[in-house]
């Protein structure tokens, strides 16, 4: 999907190559969520979703990057983040989005939980090519 970045805004990029980068990604997203004046609950939800996706990018995607910034559509403002890796991809999307399913040692709730925490969730993946996950939360 094409993320509707707000006019005149260049999304900021954060590389995700190590554990500290997950914390950095979270902090960057927190800044954007505050900037677009999300409620405290929505901020926390969006930041937590970003935290999950950043860690998946690192752990399963073998690293990649996140772009985040403000978005705008039909006069509404929101915040978006796009996580991209060129790792192994997800062979079975439905399975990966099943609560509790993990190929590692996790709780298997990151991907499915992140989807519930945001307003828009796009998963674009191809086995052998990589994975891109885009999320948006609109300000109310």
């Amino acid at each position: 999907m094409n993320v509707p970045w707000a006019a005149g805004q260049v999304p900021r990029t954060q590389g995700i190559a190590q554990n500290d980068d997950v914390v950095r990604a979270r902090q960057q997203v927190r800044g954007h969520a505050q900037q677009c004046k999300l409620s405290l609950v929505d901020q926390t939800k969006f930041i937590t979703a970003a935290s999950e996706l950043a860690r998946n990018t690192l752990v399963y995607g073998g690293g990649g990057e996140m772009r985040s910034g403000l978005v705008e559509r039909d006069g509404r403002r929101g915040v978006a983040a796009v996580f991209e890796d060129s790792g192994p991809g997800i062979p079975d999307i439905e399975l990966a989005l099943t609560d509790g399913w993990t190929s590692g040692g996790g709780l298997g709730l990151g991907l499915s939980g992140a989807r519930r925490l945001v307003d828009e969730f796009f998963l674009d993946t191809e086995a052998g090519r990589g994975t891109t996950v885009s999320i948006v939360k609109w300000s109310r």
Binding site: V41, Q43, K45, T48, E52, R116
Partner: peptide, 13 residues
């Protein structure tokens, strides 16, 4: 806190 509780529930933990 409330925002954490709501997030935990939505995550499904």
């Amino acid at each position: 806190r409330p925002q954490i509780a709501q997030t935990i529930v939505a995550l499904g933990i």
